[in-house]
Computed example of a mutant assay.
Amino acid sequence: MISETEFGFYLKQARERKGFSVNQLALESGISNAQISRIENGLRRAPKPETIRKLAEALHIPYEEMMEKAGHMPDERRQEIPPWATSKDKRDFKKMLEEDGEIMFDGIPINDVDKQRIMHVLTGFFWEAKQMNKRKKPNDPDGDKV
């Protein structure tokens, strides 16, 4: 998993390559200059996917690249997308990954290693469920062949 400092350094380099000040990036992205500064200085963990989307669009960097740099979408997870997945399926999958709530077990936050393990399992379940739904006929909720 990428550290806060590594992502912050990456963001700062991307901003400087574009020739933006922190204030210019804030205006272009709609993200506060204070938040951008905290990210760049490693004072804040990698931002949520929606924040990354805004930053990526403002800097003209592919969203997937920035997500990967932030540690949200490792290569091995992207490779698990089955060849039959439609663009709607991929959008559904991305939405599932972007829901960034705190994961807890017995009232204790789960660490990043365990989160990655859980996401790996959820990824498998997600694509298995999608494939099963594609096998069912729209007017046949039980999936029986008519």
Rank of each mutant, 00 (worst) to 15 (best):
H120I: 01
D142N: 15
M119D: 11
K90E: 12
E57Y: 06
K134N: 14
A58T: 08
N41T: 13
D144H: 13
H60D: 14
H120S: 15
E76A: 02
I52P: 09
V121S: 05
G107K: 07
K137T: 03
M67Y: 06
E50T: 12
I61Q: 05
K88S: 08
D140I: 14
E80M: 14
S87E: 15
H60P: 00
R53T: 00
K90Y: 09
P47S: 05
T86F: 11
A46R: 04
A58F: 06
T123H: 04
A56M: 06
L59A: 04
E128W: 12
M73H: 04
R44F: 05
N41W: 01
P47V: 01
E50Y: 10
F126K: 07
D140A: 09
E57C: 02
G101W: 04
K137I: 03
I61N: 00
T123M: 03
K88G: 01
T123W: 00
M73K: 02
E64V: 12
E80A: 11
P109H: 08
H120R: 14
K95E: 13
E128D: 13
H120W: 08
F105H: 10
A56G: 05
E68G: 10
E102S: 10
K48L: 03
K54E: 06
Q116D: 10
E40K: 07
H72R: 11
N133K: 12
H60M: 01
P141W: 11
E64D: 11
M96H: 07
V121Q: 10
E50L: 10
R53S: 03
R44L: 13
T86E: 08
P109T: 07
Q131L: 13
A129N: 13
R45I: 02
H60K: 10
W84C: 02
I61W: 01
F93D: 02
K134R: 14
G124H: 15
R135M: 15
P83W: 08
Q116G: 01
P49T: 09
T51W: 03
M96N: 01
P49H: 07
V121A: 11
D92Q: 12
K48R: 12
K48D: 13
G107V: 06
D142L: 12
L59R: 05
G107H: 07
N139E: 13
D100Y: 09
N111T: 06
H60R: 06
P138H: 05
R91C: 00
D100P: 02
G42P: 06
P83Y: 09
K54H: 10
Y63C: 02
V121L: 15
R77P: 00
